[in-house]
Amino acid sequence: MSREISTCPLRLRHYPGHLEPEYAYTLGIAGERFFREIKENARIMGAKCKKCGKIYVPPKLYCEECFEKLEEWVDVGTKGTVYTFTISFLDEHGEKLEKPEIYALIKFKGTYGGIVHRLGEVKPENVRIGMKVQAVFKPLTERKGTINDIAYFKPIME
């Protein structure tokens, strides 16, 4: 059996390629309302399941457990608690950041779920799990209806 071995492995070729598509995602039925409230009213909303009582943050169209449609929306306030956090020294491309960034999962009292966001106005060494934080919104004119309409969450006194 003369399996082909004459090709020098050093000459093995790579062929370049890239992804051409771009994306434009709809926010969905629940998402559109959630981001409209953030943009227009600087409010963080949850959606409540009339069957099991769970309040989803961010809101969904349906309860993933009961499969009921969620029709009752509640204002959950802008204050939450740091459930867990990480300090990132690298950016999304793996490049070293000039200044480390703190990302936290923030939970809101009496609700299910939470929001992942940046923490600001705090040094990494001072962040604690369980710390109380509050959303800092960008000025109304700069808000575009995305999660970045919240600039960051900052620590607050209890």
Partner: peptide, 15 residues
């Protein structure tokens, strides 16, 4: 309202 995104991944397919 839409969220726009462009993937940046590039590839080198070994032949």
């Amino acid at each position: 309202p839409l969220i726009r995104y462009k993937p940046e991944a590039k590839f080198a397919f070994s032949a």
